[in-house]
Design a protein around this nucleic acid. Structure first.
Length: 814
RNA sequence: GCCGGAGUGGCGGAAUUGGUAGACGCGCCAGACUCAAAAUCUGGUUCAGGCAACUGAGUGGGGGUUCGAUUCCCUUCUCCGGCACCA
């Protein structure tokens, strides 16, 4: 053993050994319990950032732990390779997106290997390759046959100067990021997948996911947003038209004082024809973005249309407005407004001097107090004709009945969740496999003509997609007719919605998936950033059900357990190029080695919390490994003494006890709690204990060997290189990854005496040592007689004494 | 704006089911080794008072429940994540 800790030599040699023995390649083995551990695959942006390192270290620690526990562990890795940044890089560097992407993949693969992650590289996937995306093209055409995909118009951000669609992140303060032109909303035809048809199932499924964090399930429930309400038809005062709205508060319907429609609503457009003010307002509305956050925070504006609707129950006239906060395409594009009982309606009514009529009053007979803000709670109805006196909950039913009986409405279930728009007007994505006909019809590309290949050697002009401006690519023939290929590509969330299944059978070229998925799925542990709590994780759950309904997979849910990791911060802020506070993982690996980086990142915080980067704490992690190395070097030089042959004294028995307590603690922290930081702290404590032992004593020599053996195994998942090298120095020939996880022996963990805290009125005043089997009375007596306690108890009335076994005694005084 | 989180020493964090607040590490201080420095090792380190024993205060702020609250409830402030075309 080299007396100096040299991480780069150690790590190179150990990684070579793993590679030579093909240590992480796995195949299905029905006799063994499988464990599928998956970290969210990265977008190949160029090089790894600390968020990746954290994500993949967590996954690797869990994988290596499960392997030592005897499981057949699958840990694959791949590349979420389509996406917008490649197009931007292509323009900046005059390199085709494909070439840029493949170069990034090659570099980042090298970085992952240098970090020593136990991946089965034979299963590597890049989603931009035809052998991957052909299957989602095939799948999409199957969904079309089942009626689960459809085409309709939807709004996009449009730059009139560049004549191109912009992503939300490309819109800065309402303007195009490249040319600063004001962006407008434009309706264009797009493809949708009917996720709403699965809304109920996706909602109910959350109840069967005990291995998911409650916060993520809550976010998904709120996102789906199921609500029960009534769709109500308001007839227009002039003409026979109807205006349908949805409300969850039919009890407030007598308080409707105005209605509002979206700027794109046919009624608004018609009113604009002979009302220039309305036309100007609608034009202004076109400049609002498509992002919900923007729409919700912008100033609410509106304008009367000069039209009136008829209240379905009272027959009263209600003015119709056009408003910028009502959106076409979300629901019916129209809302009823009850300013007394809805805050947004209240603000709007006050701004434009519209009447505010309270119809719900607090049940205790108080005043709803609607001058300053809406009264949004439930209560008792007033000013509501025959419904007066009913509590809100009853009134909802009664009014719904009345509307249904008069033919003016129907009870309805409503979702906040909207169908999944998957069309992107970009080049670097999987082409949507359809032929467009001159008459506007569409034909799915037949399976034998898939994949629809995306050309890779292209020049990007920065505005138009190369396939959109290539007439040769667009031109195709179907059944003897001239047709045109669809030039929109898929949302990249499609690729990431099924990659976890493809990892089970990445080489299958006759189908999307094969029977191997039945062995590996579901994923036992999925690890990724909390920022994916809703979109990616909901789409993947949805896609999994679509695959299930085509008979491709068996379970309902793709991910049995989910771990959402926090951000990596520096100086309290998320690392980003614009803030200039990034730390390059590569520099850290070069300077300290992979083990130090892994150790720091697992020690600095529990995985679900944000992690504050600290150069000096990295230094500390490195120092610990140096100390571990030196300690191991000293221990392997000692005579090997069998613990069973030793007569240990009381102090030595306590050290043995601590070794076994540490095994219990680390096993629980890694295997159940996922608090790797406390697992590492426990091993550090054990090391501190072991290093205080006098190595000249024979009993201590046995303890040091036993202790080092335990430390090497317990730290193996976290710092796999240094522990493997120590393992070899201890004389083992088989690899540490194949050694069994240590087991604690309860025989060594029995204690004779324990320490209890003594409190007086809840304040800690002293401590006592008592035999483990002491009776409650004996404990009380010892507590009352302890020196410091007596000073506080003296001369005061004793109320009671509370004994918490194994913890403390609380003496309560009057 | 809406939804979901997080606030504990100088810093990262620990306290697992309501039971000894500050484990472990960083930093800092002192000491050892050294001509000296680095490295390493040993000890100390929540704040205030005290030579000390010890005492008082203390988990973003305010209030509550309890023998006992970082933990449960109400309220409030600040920061972070998501909001459907960034991934």
């Amino acid at each position: 053993m080299d007396t100096r800790y040299n991480p780069s030599n150690i790590e190179t040699a150990v990684q070579q050994r793993w590679q030579d023995s093909n240590a992480f390649a796995v195949t299905e083995d029905p006799r063994r319990e499988k464990f599928y551990c998956l970290s969210m695959f990265p977008y190949p942006s160029g090089k790894l950032h600390m968020g990746h390192v954290r994500n993949y270290t967590i996954g690797d620690v869990i994988s290596r732990y499960q392997r030592m526990r005897g499981r057949n562990v699958l840990q694959p890795m791949g590349w979420d390779a389509f996406g917008l940044p490649a197009e931007n890089a292509a323009i900046d560097n005059k390199v085709p997106p494909a070439r840029w992407t493949y170069a990034n993949i090659d570099y980042m693969r090298g970085q992952l290997q240098r970090l020593g992650f136990a991946y089965d590289w034979s299963r590597e996937i890049a989603t931009c390759k035809p052998d991957y995306y052909r299957w989602e093209q095939w799948f999409f055409t199957r969904l079309y046959e089942k009626g689960l995909v459809y085409k309709r118009t939807a709004a996009v951000n449009w730059c009139p100067t560049d004549e191109t669609v912009l992503a939300n992140e490309q819109v800065i303060d309402g303007c195009c990021w490249r040319c600063d032109t004001r962006v407008v909303r434009k309706e264009i035809p797009q493809w949708f997948i009917r996720i709403t048809a699965y809304a109920d199932e996706l909602l109910a499924g959350l109840d069967n996911l005990p291995g998911w964090p409650e916060q993520v399930k809550t976010m998904q429930r709120n996102w789906i947003g199921r609500s029960e309400g009534v769709e109500v038809d308001f007839e227009l005062a002039a003409g026979a038209e109807k205006l349908a709205i949805f409300t969850t508060r039919p009890d407030t319907i007598m308080g409707v004082t105005y209605m509002a429609v979206a700027a794109e609503h046919p009624l608004a457009l018609r009113a604009a024809e002979n009302n220039p003010a309305v036309a100007a307002f609608i034009e202004e509305c076109r400049h609002a973005g498509t992002a919900e956050a923007e729409l919700e925070t912008m100033e609410k504006k509106g304008m009367p249309l000069g039209l009136e609707a008829v209240h379905p129950l009272t027959g009263g006239r209600i003015p119709l407005w056009v408003a910028n906060f009502v959106l076409m395409g979300y629901g019916t594009g129209a809302v009823m407004a009850v300013p007394a009982h809805d805050q947004r309606d209240h603000e709007f009514a006050r701004k434009y001097g519209l009447p505010i009529t309270p119809v719900i009053f607090p049940a205790d007979g108080g005043d709803p107090g609607i001058d300053e803000a809406a009264y949004v709670e439930s209560g008792v109805l007033k000013n509501s004709g025959t419904f007066d006196g009913l509590p809100s909950e009853q009134a909802k039913g009664a009014i719904a009945d009345a509307l249904e009986q008069s033919g003016h409405g129907r009870r309805q279930r409503h979702y906040r969740l909207r169908d999944w728009g998957v069309s992107r007007q970009r080049y670097w994505g999987a082409p949507i496999p359809f032929f467009n006909l001159p008459d506007g019809g569409v034909i799915p590309v037949p399976p034998e003509r898939l994949p629809v290949l995306l050309p890779e050697e292209v020049a990007m002009d920065g505005v138009r997609s190369p396939i959109k401006q290539d007439p040769v690519w667009r031109k195709a023939e179907h059944a003897g007719r001239a047709v045109e290929r669809e030039t929109d590509t898929f949302d990249t969330f499609i690729e990431s919605s099924w990659y976890y299944a493809r990892f089970c059978c990445p080489d299958q070229d006759q189908g999307m998936l094969d029977e191997r998925v039945h062995y590996w799925l579901p994923v036992d542990q999925y690890i990724g950033g909390i920022e994916h709590a809703v979109l990616h994780l909901l789409y993947a759950r949805f896609f999994h059900r679509l695959m299930r309904d085509l008979g491709l997979v068996r379970h309902d849910e793709p991910f049995a357990n989910l771990l959402t990791q926090g951000m990596v911060l520096k100086d309290g802020a998320k690392m980003s190029k614009s803030k200039g506070n990034t730390v390059d993982p590569q520099r850290m690996i070069d300077q300290y080695g992979a083990d130090t980086v892994r150790l720091f990142i697992m020690f600095a915080a529990p995985p679900d919390q944000s992690l504050e980067w600290s150069d000096s704490a990295v230094e500390g992690a490195f120092r610990f490994l140096k100390r571990l190395w030196k300690f191991a070097d000293q221990v392997v030089a000692l005579p090997r003494i069998d613990l069973a042959a030793c007569q240990l004294d009381a102090e030595q028995r306590q050290v043995l006890c601590r070794i076994h307590e540490t095994i219990v603690k680390v096993n629980d922290d890694i295997g159940r709690r996922y608090t790797f930081n406390t697992a590492i702290a426990a091993v550090m404590e054990l090391m501190n204990t072991l290093q205080r032992l006098d190595p000249a004593n024979a009993g201590n020599q046995a303890l040091l060997h036993a202790g080092l053996d335990a430390v090497a195994r317990l730290l193996a998942p976290i710092v796999p290189h240094i522990t493997q090298a120590i393992w070899e120095a201890l004389g083992h020939t088989e690899m540490l990854i194949d050694a069994p996880w240590p087991e604690a022996n309860p025989e060594f963990m029995q204690r004779e005496e324990i320490t209890l805290a003594v409190q007086v009125n809840g304040k800690r005043r002293d401590e006592i040592r008592v035999p483990v089997d002491a009776t409650e009375d004996a404990i009380k007596e010892a507590a009352m007689n302890s020196e410091n306690t007596r000073r506080f108890v003296a001369g005061r009335d004793l109320r009671r004494v509370i004994v918490i076994p194994g913890r403390l005694v609380n003496i309560v005084l009057a």
